[in-house]
């Protein structure tokens, strides 16, 4: 949870995932989405901001021998890249979708990890036209054996999770997703950031942000 300003408006801290760690430095990667991130983008080197963290859980590591499929939609690349970096010696398939070519981030760093990402853009300006899930579906049709041998990790917007969830049900895919949600406290007390699951409402800040894909109930 990071406060973007010292005043009362905006009032609340913003939740961000950790993008990269360099010694004691924490790097976050964010998209200009609203008032908070616009203020944050105006901060200068040396500015001091309040932060509380790290909070919540993390992606569970894949079992030894598990191959992994990583899926990132838009700014969902922030934690997915961190995971890819961590798993660098494992066999990784990365599906990465964004609205346009301009919104694709970290592609050089991804390649420098030895990963050849399957890129897609909504407008077709780079890679395949469509979403990361469209690209994954095409891949599954060509390589049906992937289904049983791979573990999924995904982060992206809610429509992406919904279609991934349908796809996973159909092919019995298992995996984990990192959710984004508006938060007030970030430490499990306000109950504002819940998500509906098969086990009832769960706090994205505390029991999450990573959940088993099959546990989430989308409306």
């Amino acid at each position: 949870m990071l406060s973007v300003d010292h005043g009362m408006d905006p009032l609340l801290k913003r939740p961000f995932s950790i993008h990269r760690l360099f010694g004691d430095d924490v790097q976050i990667l964010y998209r200009l989405a609203g008032k908070g991130t616009h203020i944050l983008s105006g901060r200068n080197k040396g500015d001091i901001l309040d932060a509380v963290g790290p909070l919540g859980n993390k992606f569970p590591p894949p079992g030894s021998g598990d191959k992994t499929i990583l899926i990132a939609g838009g700014i969902g690349i922030a934690p997915i890249f961190a995971l890819a970096e961590k798993l660098k010696n494992k066999e990784i398939l990365l599906f990465y979708g964004a609205k346009t070519k301009e919104e694709l981030l970290c592609t050089d760093q991804i390649k420098s990890l030895g990963i050849d990402p399957v890129i897609s853009t909504d407008d077709g300006s780079c890679g395949q036209k469509g979403t990361a899930i469209d690209a994954l579906i095409k891949h599954l049709i060509r390589h049906p054996s992937l289904v049983t041998s791979h573990r999924l990790y995904a982060c992206g917007p809610r429509p992406m999770f919904k279609s991934l969830s349908l796809l996973a049900k159909k092919h019995n895919l298992k995996g984990y997703i990192a959710l984004e949600q508006h938060m007030a406290c970030g430490i499990g007390t306000c109950l504002g950031c819940v998500i509906n699951t098969v086990d009832g409402y769960k706090r994205v800040c505390r029991e999450g942000p990573v959940f088993p894909l099959e546990k989430i109930l989308w409306e």
Binding site: D9, L11, L12, H182, A184, C190, L191, G192, Y201
Partner: peptide, 23 residues
């Protein structure tokens, strides 16, 4: 009590709205 469906909170100028639903 299980509380209300989400979204349950939103930020407003110098404040926030909540409808947690007494979970």
């Amino acid at each position: 009590m299980k509380g209300n469906p989400e979204p349950r909170i939103c930020e407003t100028p110098c404040g926030m709205l909540n409808a947690i639903g007494l979970q």
